[in-house]
Amino acid sequence: MALRTEHELHARRRSRNLGLLVVLIGFAALVFALSVVKVSTGGGAALEGYDHQVRPSLLPRDEGVEIAPSDDPVAAPGTPAADAGARAEP
């Protein structure tokens, strides 16, 4: 029976192990919750980047390049712009 007697030392060891368990589970939960918040509040870029494809809308703009409407736009056939006289072929 003496072998089964629990020493005070075992109680200390258990307190350490349980403490570490709680800390690790808590940390994992925290990182998960933080990830959820970061993804859902990170703006469009975080959500649009899901498919690992290059998306021109997400690329940063080049320095010094002005983006302005074309002087000679191309319109799809049948659209109001094509009816108004814009060229239909590129």
Binding site: E8, L9, A11, R12, R13, S15, R16, L18, G19, L20
Partner: peptide, 16 residues
Amino acid sequence: MTTYQAQGEAEFGDYV
């Protein structure tokens, strides 16, 4: 209490 109790068997609170 016993001689080997002092041999660094810390509880969680000691680390806190």
